[in-house]
Amino acid sequence: MPAAKRLPSRAALLTEPPRAGLDLAALVATWPVLAAARRGDGHPVLVLPGLMTGDPATLVLRTALRALGHNVSGWSLGLNRGPTGRVVSTLRAHLERLHRTSGRRVSLVGWSLGGLYAQELARAAPGSVRGLVTLGTPVVRWAPWVRTASGIVDGATGLLAGGAAMPRPWAERGSLRVPATSVYTRADGIVPWSSCRYEVRARRENVEVRGSHLGLACNPGVLWLLADRLGMAEGTWTPFRPPFALRPFFPRGR
């Protein structure tokens, strides 16, 4: 169990926006390298945004993945105010529709709170999900920050009564039965990084990147990782290994 479980420092939180700008600048500078990333195979990919953001916040991520041949969709639900009844029912219907119309399982990418949605969708409908990648998401049930997440979300967004429709992460039943990758950064100014690490087991991994929480959706290392994970043939899985040119974005000893 990781030792560091304290909330991020005030300095880390206040510097999130400028550090996210640096992540975006790095993406522009490294695009020639990213253009050589693994190509998509046409299966659907659903991208879920973080709390109080929406599809505009994942536009760079989705555009970059589409340029690499991935069949990417946004969540199309406006501002993410938390797991209201409408969000829960619509996401489940959206997942099933993508699976049904394509005839292929769907990959899920969730940023921060969106990663919790992705986990619940994978648990509820494993037959429709090919795999998932979470970005800066508190995936561990025992983490103190995760146990208080309901109060944070409810207090910040004023959820309607239907907000309890999606089980909270520590109350979910069953285990993930699809490949899962959790991406985290120790410089996260919003979510404690130690809560973003799975217990490692078959087809499950944690990958550390250098960068900010707000910049995870435009971080060059994250974009390469997503292209690599989403481009694996269905039914196959190997641990992620960063390319030599992008190793500065991946701390050693992760």
Rank of each mutant, 00 (worst) to 15 (best):
A4K: 14
K5T: 15
K5A: 15
L7C: 13
A12T: 12
A20T: 07
G21W: 00
A26P: 04
A35E: 11
G40E: 06
G50P: 01
P56S: 10
P56W: 07
L59S: 03
L65N: 12
S73K: 09
S76H: 13
L79D: 08
N80H: 02
R81E: 02
G82C: 13
L91K: 08
R92Y: 08
H99P: 11
H99L: 07
S102I: 14
R104T: 15
G110M: 08
G110D: 07
L113Q: 01
Y117L: 12
A118M: 01
A122M: 13
A122K: 09
R123P: 06
A124N: 05
A125I: 14
G127N: 12
G127S: 09
G127Q: 12
G127W: 14
V129P: 00
P144V: 09
D154E: 08
A156I: 01
G163C: 07
A164F: 12
M166T: 12
R173P: 13
G174C: 10
L176P: 01
A180N: 06
T181A: 04
V183E: 09
V183L: 06
R186D: 01
D188E: 06
C196R: 00
V200N: 02
V207R: 03
V209H: 00
S212Q: 05
G215H: 00
N219H: 10
W224M: 05
L230M: 08
A233R: 11
A233K: 09
F249M: 05
